[in-house]
Design a binder for these strands. Sequence first.
DNA 1: GGAGCGAGTGGAACACGTTCTAGAGGTTAT
DNA 2: ATAACCTCTAGAACGTGTTCCACTCGCTCC
Lengths: 196, 196
Amino acid sequence: MQTTFRPLTRAQQARRQRVIDAAMDLGLEGGYEAVQMRDVAARAGVAMGTVYRYFTSKDHLLAATLVRWVELLDARLAQQPARGNSPDQRVLDVLDRALRAMGRQPKLVAAVFTSLSSPDPGAVECQQQVTVLMEGIVTRAIGEPQPPDLGDRARMIGHVWYSALVGWINGWSTLARVYGELEVAVGLLLPRELSS
Amino acid sequence: MQTTFRPLTRAQQARRQRVIDAAMDLGLEGGYEAVQMRDVAARAGVAMGTVYRYFTSKDHLLAATLVRWVELLDARLAQQPARGNSPDQRVLDVLDRALRAMGRQPKLVAAVFTSLSSPDPGAVECQQQVTVLMEGIVTRAIGEPQPPDLGDRARMIGHVWYSALVGWINGWSTLARVYGELEVAVGLLLPRELSS
DNA sequence: GGAGCGAGTGGAACACGTTCTAGAGGTTAT
DNA sequence: ATAACCTCTAGAACGTGTTCCACTCGCTCC
């Protein structure tokens, strides 16, 4: 139980990061089941107790891994702005790039997304962070001209993104199908008329 | 391993249903963690092996419980048709009734929805059944006049419904907020102009 | 420079989902 | 009627997430 909220020392930051990296490594090859807490601890060079000091559960750890993953994605996307000369095109461009990135590491993405929907309080915090990041990505891609109810539309696209992705992760949909759903959503939520 | 697909005997149907009922009872009071397989088996009066003959996992069992729950909801909704004289009003009426029903058994609903997003193959089958049921409910509520891309719009509402609900289940949103998101979705996806 | 304290370690212990084993009925086909 | 086959039972056994314990180390505050 951490009573006083001292900021993490440099060494602690590093330890925490090592744990996340270890989880990423393991998840990359074997997915959710391959991320075993004993292995994570061993690979990160810390004791199990330490892992549980930083993360309340396996799901929290994996959800935190997703946050890191999306942050990296966000940075990459921000570097190269969305292509397209209307909001709908730009949004689809960005989402397409995001899905491609996921397709390159399907096991890891499946693992961390599965954890993202866990009711664990630690994981819930990460859910919110991911939501915020995604809304930012979509909002940035919409750019100008801003449609009315910008926030609402971005949030709805976020909902479709999440829900459709769950279908892929659980294996009864494909990335192409997810992209199709997003096309439909963008088509209905960001109609061309708005950009004229 | 069931090699030949003989239809279930009456006694087997009953056993299977007893197991689901037991899971419902336990989940009603204590949520996900209170549904322990040993307890389920004991309460249903069957051996653990039997539970696992009918359901591949705890998540499958709970997901099947949700299917049953939604079927009952569907039947109740079908009895009393949606109120409202435009598609958007009728859809919101139906969704509102569904959310109220959920609000009456929050722990159970949280438990079964958590399981719904499990990658377990048995659970995945249930996901699809629930998806189909929900799309049917929404499509029926839309009624006449049918907007263009009826299926797409209904499916998108389903996405928002699921994604927003996850927020409630995990405790960082409220039912009112979920309803708000659905209002926004319906507002954007079923604009009044379509009904005129 | 000693006392206190919180973080970290190593590993045992625990809980619960899941699987396995051995055997008892019951049903079907010959 | 009997052999073959399934289902079901009771409960042991297993695996992995999580917790607990006893201890060490390093820092901070007098």
